[in-house]
Nucleic acid binder design. Structure first.
Length: 935
RNA sequence: GCGGAUGUGGCGUAAUUGGUAGCCGUGCCAGACUUAGGAUCUGGUGCCGAAAGGCGUGGGGGUUCGAGUCCCUUCAUCCGCACCA
């Protein structure tokens, strides 16, 4: 009766899912004598489309790890939740009139339903949803802690604003200059103030100054404003300067918004990468994003027509090339542009500024290589040799990076060189033969020439010499720059966390902790108000809730909820704190974090930032959230096409399509076997195709194929429910792992799933007889059987520890084949293997475990230990290679001395045949590996 | 352009980390059983060759007794960044 059939699988899986749920077996306690282990999945955004086979890939891997670690005696935290705020739900509400809260709740139910069928060992009692007020209360609370902090550069850590005020009262800001260099004390032209000054400032001035230091601060920043849609767009909704939806033009618009001062943490975010186990590419992407460059700020005197002197500060990473400066270039937006322009050049400059103004983001991006610019008529004086060089403006210099001004060194910088050639500026060669006259050479290896006191010095050595000289002369200093900008934290959206602040005048004050959460008000109007403010601005009574006070009409980005959710899992129901200190200390860092590489920058950086801030403020005893990160590859779709002859309802097979004028159409992959279309199913697929006719080749309709992302609109989505229906969750789990290395992207291909299914059935039959009864032997196992067992356990353990799940599945198959062929059904062999299999195929493992007579769930079993003693061979068959080619094989004891092996090999007839009696020049004996003769 | 990764049979992949390349699975070929089925079992299967043998890890070069693995170079594909001074 009980074969491992479709019906039996369904029965087993349903049975165990029910039992697991009833007995609450995955519930985890925050205290245990066992060591802790924290396995985390990136929690999903519950989209309406549901799961496809690509989604569970990482979840299956992390589930295997957590089940394995549990069997290994760890107290494992393995939670799941939902990143439930976000744009699609809001867009869906606008399009379909369904409130985001409603559609999100539905989608979450749907996700949980699908997830539950795959047999994950999540502790659902710890589920978090970022849109739940009891959760976002703490998102808001953490935001307020960040608002109440500043970065003490001297101590390289965040401190409370109260500490800063105490400092100001005592000594002003002389030791802690404004992080933003352009800010001046209100009402003055000064960058510093004294303790007495501070005491004389009014409340407004004080708050304005404090705002310059806060780690969460308000400032005027650009938003992507789309006039046609009447809304503000997120950066990823803007593709090449036009809106993702509709392709409408997008312009920059200044608005007063929240930002997080992540730039203060640039160095620590960079250094932290050395301590954590992320892939090289992931670390590189983050380093790249932070974009550290070390160089110098150099001050040049400007001589302009009026005669009044001004100073121009440039940033350069190559101060060693200072004698190669042939011109200066300012960003068109640079503040000096208008004041230094000569009367003669005024027209040119104004014309150029108008041109720049007229250029949209798209133009600028599309024509990066186009060289434009205008001369100001002013000159800059090289501080070292007094040389006068012209000052130009050009859009290739960005206002937002460095000082918005550069020194042009055409012989060493490609862009400067092109600029010089285009405008016929002279090129001073300071690198001798390294410069060929037609192309710049950015080398650091050249020996400097025409460079005054640097002559004869190699460039990379000269860099420090110049910086010292600059500092000595007081005309420059060492400077580190970062590409990373502060993180914009306001979204003009409804479906997110409201900012827990109250404005009095234009100053925001933190809400009292006791008033949190500031609940997102009910609304049915999700369109942004015309002014560019978010939808909350429509709710006048909520915004202006009290005389003289007003709320923020923006909400936080989804990154906010996701920046700390891994902490909430540790103590998810706490209403006194975001998590109890004891729980935070107990669980600590996430040991393994599994998720997609698309979150390389935003999510991972913000999480790292929040953890660092919470660490600095004393809430956490660790300052990196994730000890190890695994990026599962994407599973792509394998699309199929049919070719419709244009203007007809005839479809031509792929091999014959060249003879026709055709349009390719995506066809549902579920009605194609390999490349062959099920023509009847195709006719039934859509009414339009009911009357389809086919032009066949060899009696078959062959489809075209292409690898694309899995998407409903490509009809290449494979739903895990369908696989589970046909093969069961255990086969799905093992097959997804078997598909290839976890971190590699690969197309989904259902071919081959039979192999995994056959394995499970074979394994099942190891201990079932033909009638389906359990048939195990309690006899002592043979040495051969023990060897198979221990070898397998050893490899499986190694593979899981190294996240190499594809090879562990292979290992199970090999083991099963070997046991089948020696007809082994010994209990002492099978039982450990069932335990080892349980992380991969938990349902069938539980069933077998029970059938083997165990009352307790397999979850409380212990992962078997292997014994090297069974793996040791006493002899080894040595390949004998002669000049690199294996010519013979000989068996020797493993502990035989090298000399004896050498003697025996040389004396053997099989070897003599190849050596032709000559003595080899050299004999290499590697114990347990190979014997190599060099003739 | 810069940075990161990948490249092995018809296909997905493996290789004790420098030691017999191709494990496992699919696919294909042959056979067995059979109530002919997209079931099950057994054997074969990198390429050339009748065989002996030769050739083979994108291409070229190098180090080594020995290279898929290390070094140099080159090509192809994917991903990230992209006027960042």
């Amino acid at each position: 009766m009980a074969d491992y059939s479709k019906e039996e699988i369904k029965r087993i899986e349903e049975k165990w899912r029910t039992i697991w749920k009833e007995r609450d077996v995955y519930k985890v306690q925050n205290n245990s004598p066992k060591p802790k282990y924290y396995v985390l999945d990136m929690f999903p955004y519950p989209s309406g489309a549901g799961l496809h086979v690509g989604h569970p890939l990482g979840y299956i891997a992390s589930d295997i790890v957590s089940r394995y670690k549990r069997l290994k005696g760890f107290n494992v935290l393995h939670p799941m939740g939902f990143d439930a705020f976000g744009l699609p739900a809001e867009q869906y509400a606008i399009d379909h009139g369904i409130h985001p809260a409603v559609s999100t709740a539905q989608n979450i139910e749907n996700f949980k339903d699908q997830l539950s069928k795959i047999g994950f060992s999540y502790d659902w009692s710890r589920e978090v949803q970022t849109c739940d007020p009891s959760y976002y209360k703490w998102t808001q609370w953490i935001f307020l802690q960040i608002f109440d902090s500043w970065y003490n550069r001297r101590k390289e850590k965040a401190e409370r604003i109260a500490d800063l005020i105490a400092l100001f009262e005592k000594e002003g800001n002389t030791n802690h200059p404004f992080p933003n260099v352009k800010f001046l004390v209100p009402g003055t032209k000064k960058e510093t103030f004294s303790g007495d000054d501070w005491k004389s400032f009014d409340e407004h001035t004080r708050q304005e100054i404090l705002m310059q230091y806060r780690l969460a601060y308000l400032a005027y920043t650009d938003v992507n404003w789309c006039e046609a849609l009447g809304t503000v767009l997120a950066n990823d909704e803007v593709i090449n300067g036009v809106s993702y939806r509709g392709g409408f033009p997008v312009v920059k618009k200044q608005m007063r918004q929240w930002s997080l001062r992540i730039t203060e943490y640039a160095e620590r975010l960079l250094k932290g990468l050395d301590e954590i186990d992320f892939s090289d590419s992931m670390k590189e992407i983050q380093r790249n994003w932070i974009g550290k460059s070390v160089g110098a700020k150099v001050t040049f005197e400007i001589q302009s027509e009026g005669g009044q002197s001004s100073k121009l500060v440039v940033f350069t990473t190559r101060p060693d090339t200072i004698f190669g400066v042939d011109f200066m270039v300012l960003a068109p937006e640079h503040e000096l542009v208008r004041s230094i322009t000569s009367t003669e050049q005024k027209e040119d400059i104004e014309k150029y500024l108008r041109y720049v103004e007229s250029r949209s983001e798209i133009d600028r991006m599309a024509e990066v290589k186009k060289i434009t610019g205008a001369a100001t008529g002013a000159f800059a004086i090289n501080p070292f040799n007094g040389r006068k060089v012209p000052v130009w403006i050009s859009e290739y210099v960005l206002a937002g990076y460095g000082t918005g001004a550069i020194m042009g060194v055409p012989c060493g910088d490609e862009r400067d060189h092109k600029f010089a050639k285009h405008f016929n500026l002279p090129v001073t060669n300071i690198i001798g033969e390294y410069y060929n006259g037609s192309e710049a050479n950015p080398t650091k290896e050249a020996t400097l020439q025409n460079s005054d006191f640097l002559n004869g010095m190699v460039m990379h050595d000269a860099i420090d010499v110049v910086i010292s000289k600059l500092e000595e002369k007081g005309i420059g200093k060492r400077q580190v720059n970062y590409k990373m900008r502060d993180a914009g934290w306001s979204r003009q959206r409804y479906w997110g966390e409201p900012f827990p602040v109250v404005y009095r005048g234009d100053i925001p004050y933190a809400m009292d902790e006791k008033e949190l959460p500031l609940v997102l008000p009910e609304s049915n109007n999700f369109r942004s108000s015309g002014s560019g403010e978010g939808p909350l601005a429509n709710l006048k009574e909520w915004v202006f809730f009290k005389d003289g006070e007003r709320r923020d009409t923006n909400t936080m980005p989804t990154h906010a909820g996701a920046a700390w959710y891994f902490l909430r899992y540790m103590d998810p129901h706490n209403d006194k704190a975001f998590a109890e200190k004891k729980a935070l200390d107990y669980w600590g860092q996430v040991d393994v974090y599994v998720g997609g590489s698309e979150h390389a920058v935003a999510h991972l950086l913000y999480s790292r930032l929040w953890v660092k801030i919470l660490h600095d403020l004393g809430y956490l005893n660790f300052d990196e959230p994730f000890r190890k990160l695994i990026n599962q590859g994407k599973i792509t779709g394998d699309s199929r096409f049919v070719y419709r002859v244009r203007g007809t309802n005839k479809f031509v097979s792929a091999g014959l399509k060249d003879g026709y004028d055709t349009d390719p159409l995506h066809v549902d992959v579920n009605i194609v076997t390999g490349l062959e279309l099920d023509t009847q199913a195709f006719k039934n697929w859509k009414p339009d195709f009911a009357t389809a006719e086919f032009i066949l080749e060899d009696g078959k309709y062959i489809c075209g194929a292409s690898i694309e992302k899995m998407s409903k609109s490509y009809f290449n989505v494979v739903n895990p429910d369908v696989i589970i229906e046909n093969y069961g969750a255990d086969t799905l789990r093992m097959y997804e792992m078997f598909l290839g290395p976890l971190e590699l992207s690969k197309p989904w291909n259902t071919h081959g799933i039979d192999g995994v299914y056959k394995f499970l059935r074979k394994f099942w039959h190891l201990i079932h007889d033909h009638q389906g009864n359990i048939h195990v032997s309690d006899d002592e196992p043979s040495r051969e059987e023990l060897k198979v067992l221990h070898k397998t356990i050893k490899k499986i353990e190694y593979d899981i520890e190294h996240f190499s799940f594809n090879t562990s599945v292979s290992e199970f198959m090999i083991c099963c084949n070997e046991l089948s062929s020696i007809k082994c059904n010994k209990r002492s062999i099978i039982e450990p293997l069932v335990i080892a299999l349980s992380p991969f195929a938990p349902h069938v493992a539980e069933e077998l475990w029970e059938k083997l007579g165990h009352g307790e769930s397999i979850l409380s079993a212990t992962f078997p230990a292997y014994d090297e003693a069974y793996l040791k061979e006493d002899s080894f068959e040595y390949p004998i290679s002669i000049n690199g080619k294996v010519r013979a094989k000989m068996n020797f004891a493993l502990d035989m001395p090298k000399e004896d092996i050498e003697k025996l090999v040389l004396a053997s007839d099989a070897v003599a045949k190849w050596t032709e009696g000559k003595t080899p020049k050299k004999v290499i004996v590697v114990p347990g590996r190979i014997v190599n003769l060099v003739m």
